Computed example of a mutant assay.
Amino acid sequence: MAQEHSVFSNIQDNRTSSLAEQVADQINQVIIDQNINAGEKLPNEFELAARLNVGRGTIREAVKLLVARNCLEIRRGKGTFVVEKPGQIEDPLGFAYVKDKITLAVDLMELRLQLEPWVAQLAAQRIEENEKDTLRQLCEQVEHKIRSGEDHGPADKEFHAYVARCTHNSVITEIMPVITYSIEMFTKFKAPRLLGDTIRTHWQITEAICANDPQKAYDSMYEHVSENRESIEIVRRMSMEQNRNRDN
């Protein structure tokens, strides 16, 4: 209990933020310091209020802040729990609310073209032996989905996310949701002829990474993303032409 008291002892001395924000930050720090795992329940608001020497209303406001930050979740009738991936949200930049999805896809392709070849290069340098079979299995899964006519978007996202994981760079892994969002969106626009290219370039990327060949991995990923970008550019031009014809 003494350790817990020390964590919260100076909470009201900081006047640069609201009391609720201070409480929220300290609760978040406890989650980090005490390695409270995903799915574990926090003390109830009565206990937290007593420990922090603040009112229950302040505790409720602090919890709301942490829910908004995707650090906690409230389960009705059960209590407050740490979420699976604290602090992470699926659409951190609000892409779901962008009206022009085709232009957004083009912009994201520009980002991917600069970032993902380097990610593949790094993965080829750092992949561990026990990860190579998994990468090949994910590549096979994408091919199977495409050849069977199923939606391959989720499998495609998983493949690219695993390439990032093989870099063993925690920052790259965390920014991948931005990349995988563009992948899921792009599969909706993908031309049939590009599906075969997806299979081919995915295998080129996979084998280059598994062979620990950084340059080949870079070149293969660059080719893959470039083909995707060219295809979505065609879709955008067609869409713009249709809009002009409609206006005329």
Rank of each mutant, 00 (worst) to 15 (best):
T103I: 08
L135F: 04
L42G: 04
E73Y: 03
E61Y: 07
R51N: 10
P86Q: 07
Q125Y: 04
C71T: 13
K64H: 09
D100F: 08
A105F: 02
N44E: 09
A50K: 15
H144I: 09
K157H: 02
F159K: 00
C71S: 11
P43Q: 09
L115C: 04
V83G: 03
Q141R: 15
I127S: 01
D156I: 00
D107R: 11
L115G: 05
R69V: 03
K157L: 05
C71K: 12
L138H: 02
N53M: 11
A96K: 15
Q114H: 12
L122S: 09
G79P: 03
L72T: 03
A124V: 03
N44S: 08
M109L: 11
R126Q: 14
V83M: 04
E143H: 07
Q114R: 14
H152D: 08
I89H: 04
N44D: 15
K132R: 12
P43R: 02
W118Y: 13
A38G: 15
K41H: 02
D156S: 10
A38L: 02
I127Q: 00
C139D: 04
R75W: 10
R112M: 08
I146Y: 01
N37H: 12
L135S: 03
V106Q: 10
N130R: 12
E128K: 15
L113H: 09
L65V: 11
N130S: 14
G149M: 04
E140S: 14
P86W: 04
Q125T: 13
A105I: 05
K41I: 10
K41E: 13
R69L: 09
G79A: 06
P86K: 04
A105T: 14
R136P: 00
L93F: 14
L42N: 06
P86E: 04
T103Q: 15
Q88N: 10
K64T: 14
A123T: 04
G77H: 08
A96Q: 12
D156R: 12
N70F: 06
I89C: 11
T58D: 05
L42D: 05
A123G: 06
W118D: 09
V163S: 00
L111G: 13
Q121N: 09
A164S: 15
E140H: 13
L42R: 06
A68W: 02
H144D: 13
A164P: 01
P117H: 05
E150M: 07
A120N: 06
N70V: 06
T134W: 00
V67Q: 10
L48V: 10
R56C: 07
E131I: 03
K132Q: 12
L104Y: 05
E73R: 13
T134K: 12
L111P: 00
I102R: 06
G55I: 04
A120L: 07
K78L: 13
L138W: 01
V82D: 01
D156C: 04
E158Q: 15
I146E: 00
V82S: 02
R147Y: 05
V63T: 10
I146T: 02
V106N: 12
A68D: 14
V119H: 01
E47A: 15
A68G: 08
